[in-house]
């Protein structure tokens, strides 16, 4: 089950039948009590990838991509906040989570400035319930390991979104900012993966998608 890939089709179109099947399998796993295993968490990333893809696919412009990215960063800030307040983290891990939350906030702030410079309107601030739209199950985390695995899924989703954005963005500065943010999310992944004894850099091309 671990090898199962997220179902996202290369051209940005999602195969709904496949997703329905995937969701069915996931529910089966949960029903059988496998809990928050890596595969289950991975499966839950589908909604975000689809929504991000759709947003990017639908938009011809940089501003829509920026709005999606700002929302995504805002959700990451909230998710790290939930993790910090969960009582599940050691002192050291709490420091890491605070640091990463600060980074996500810096990304959101920079992207918001870029958007307003372009004449765009920042999106509404996301709420806690919106985290589910990216990675489901933040309310069911039971250990520091669960939190790390959840954060890995979140960061992978962000990396995947920026990876896809590079096909669509036009503005040179935005492309460069996107790459430097994406690279920072990848660095978060290294620390999180090491925390749960996973390979820190499993793919030569870090696309945010499992191989």
């Amino acid at each position: 089950m671990m090898a199962r890939e997220r179902i996202v089709i290369a051209d940005g179109d999602a195969d709904t039948a496949q997703i329905a099947e995937f969701e069915h399998d996931r529910r089966e796993l949960i029903r059988r009590g496998l809990g928050l295993g890596g595969a289950v968490v991975a499966a839950s990333s589908i909604p975000l990838l689809l929504s991000v893809r759709n947003a990017f696919a639908a938009s011809g412009g940089d501003m829509e991509i920026l709005q999606s990215a700002i929302t995504l960063e805002g959700i990451a800030v909230l998710a790290y906040g939930v993790a910090i307040d969960s009582g599940l983290l050691s002192e050291d891990f709490t420091k890491v989570a605070r640091r990463f939350r600060d980074h996500e906030q810096e990304h959101a702030d920079a992207l918001t400035t870029a958007l307003t410079d372009l004449g765009g309107t920042p999106p509404a601030k996301p709420e806690i319930k919106d985290i589910d739209g990216v990675v489901k199950g933040i309310g069911t985390l039971k250990s520091q390991g669960d939190v790390a695995n959840f954060a890995i899924e979140l960061e992978m989703a962000a990396v995947a979104a920026y990876y896809e954005a590079h096909r669509k963005l036009n503005d040179a500065k935005l492309l460069q900012a996107g790459a430097s943010i994406m690279a920072n999310e990848a660095q978060h992944l290294v620390v999180l993966r090491q925390a749960v004894k996973r390979s820190p850099a499993p793919n030569a091309f870090e696309t945010g998608k499992p191989q």
Partner: peptide, 25 residues
Amino acid sequence: LPKLGKGDLRATAAAIVANEAEHVS
């Protein structure tokens, strides 16, 4: 990166940057 004409190449370059950044960490 911004000088690359093809979207696929830009995305690939970004994926390489992310991997090099992982190495740094």
